[in-house]
Simulated assay, not measured.
Amino acid sequence: MEEFRREIVKALQCAEHLKFDKSHPWHRNLMALYGALVEYSDSLIHLAMAKKSVAIPVVFRSFLEAYVDFKNLAEDRRYGNHMEASYSKEWLRVLEEAEERKNPYLVGIGSDAELMLQIQHHKDRLTQLKADGYQPLSHYTKFEKAGMVEEYRSIYNFFCSDSHNNIRSLIDRFIIIDKEKNDFELVFFKDSPSGEFDHYLSTALHLLRNGSHNIHAVLETGYEHVFPV
Rank of each mutant, 00 (worst) to 15 (best):
T127D: 02
I155F: 09
E144D: 15
F184T: 01
I155Q: 04
P136K: 07
K22S: 09
E99I: 07
Q118M: 11
K10V: 10
T141Q: 14
A98P: 01
F143W: 11
V9P: 06
L129E: 07
N81Y: 00
M148E: 12
I56V: 14
D162G: 04
L129I: 08
A131C: 02
Y134V: 14
V187N: 00
R93I: 10
V229N: 15
L44D: 10
D132V: 05
R125N: 11
G222N: 00
S53N: 11
V59N: 10
E16Q: 07
R153S: 08
E16G: 02
L201Q: 06
M83H: 03
S202V: 10
A217H: 09
R173C: 03
F184A: 00
E90Q: 14
P104W: 15
I8Y: 06
A32C: 06
F184P: 03
E114F: 13
I8F: 09
M49G: 12
D76A: 08
L47I: 15
S192L: 09
Q118E: 10
I171H: 02
K51V: 01
E7Y: 04
Y134I: 12
E16K: 12
D178P: 00
V94A: 08
S41L: 13
I56F: 02
I215W: 01
H82T: 11
S43W: 10
V58S: 08
R28S: 15
A146Q: 12
A131Q: 13
S161E: 05
L115Q: 07
R61V: 08
D42K: 15
R5G: 09
D191M: 12
G222W: 06
M31G: 10
Q13V: 13
L186Q: 06
A11E: 00
L129V: 06
Q13M: 10
F227N: 12
A146N: 08
M148R: 08
I171S: 02
R209Y: 02
L126D: 01
K51C: 07
H46C: 10
H199I: 12
A32T: 10
H164P: 07
E7N: 13
V68E: 04
A146R: 03
S163N: 05
G147S: 08
F189S: 11
Y40W: 11
N157M: 12
F143L: 11
D172G: 03
S163P: 03
E39V: 04
L73F: 05
D198E: 14
S169N: 01
E220Y: 05
Y140N: 10
E96N: 09
A85D: 08
L126K: 06
E7A: 13
R77F: 08
M148L: 15
N182P: 03
D162S: 04
T203F: 03
M148D: 11
Q118N: 02
V218T: 14
L208M: 09
Y87A: 12
K179D: 05
E90K: 15
V58L: 13
I177K: 13
D198A: 11
G108H: 12
S62A: 15
P25V: 03
D76M: 06
I175A: 01
G80S: 00
A55I: 04
R78H: 00
R77Y: 09
K142Y: 03
F60C: 07
A98S: 00
D191V: 10
H216R: 06
